[in-house]
Nucleic acid binder design. Structure first.
Length: 200
DNA sequence: CTCCCGATAT
DNA sequence: ATATCAGGAG
């Protein structure tokens, strides 16, 4: 199952554009409920203006809100970014921590974002469960749960640990291209013979 | 559970 | 018009 999807989506990887752990963290925080294309469009200019944690605190919050406006939820995200930068400076020496327990303490960072960041920083402690991983895991019969934490518990039992980092990427790419939320293209799916939800 | 919220596809 | 997009906080 995983190998078939790996062949189908050989280029599956994170689609956010970033050049440092800090840019990675910001990109993932901004990506909540919006597309990575939309995030990349905003961060292209954002990362020229905001290079260090201090830069996010040096401007009025309204200015940061305007700079991230197009990603939606801009007030909450601006507040979370400022709180996170404050904590990075005060408790983490201005660096982005790489472990789940540390990342989850940052405002605006819960388990999903923490899993993405720690995984990309080479320290995968769990499996990323986002909207695509959740939908495909349910359709493919990997889980019957609704809660992302319970879904992750089912997945860590099913997915071999070496596959933890790439598994979400495969689910996400397959979810975007084939197993689309509104209209799944079951006739074009390479695992439709194994899928309980297949319409083919 | 509700609220936060813009961009895009259908 | 409405569903969906690499969610999180109160």
């Amino acid at each position: 199952m995983i190998e078939r999807l790996a062949v189908e989506h050989a280029d599956a990887k994170i689609a956010l554009t970033f050049a440092s752990p800090l840019e990675l963290l910001v990109s993932v925080m901004l990506s909540a409920q919006t597309t990575d294309v939309n995030v990349n469009r905003v961060t292209q200019a954002l990362f020229v203006k905001y290079r260090r944690p201090e830069d996010y605190l040096a401007v009025p919050q309204e200015e940061l809100e305007r700079d991230i406006f197009a990603t939606g939820f801009f007030r909450q995200k601006a507040r979370s970014l400022r709180g996170t930068m404050q904590m990075l400076i005060e408790e983490f020496g201005g660096e982005v921590p790489a472990t789940l327990p540390e990342l989850v303490r940052l405002p605006g960072v819960a388990r999903k974002t923490a899993n993405v960041v720690s995984s990309e920083l080479g320290n995968p402690e769990g499996i990323v469960v986002d909207t695509h991983v959740r939908r495909l895991s349910q359709r493919l019969g990997f889980t019957k749960q609704e809660d992302p934490v319970k879904i992750e518990q089912d997945l860590v039992r099913l997915v071999p640990r070496p596959d933890w980092p790439r598994f979400p990427h495969l689910m996400i790419w397959h979810g975007r291209r084939v197993c689309i939320a509104r209209r799944p293209l079951c006739e074009d799916c390479v695992v439709n013979d194994l899928c309980p939800s297949s319409r083919v």
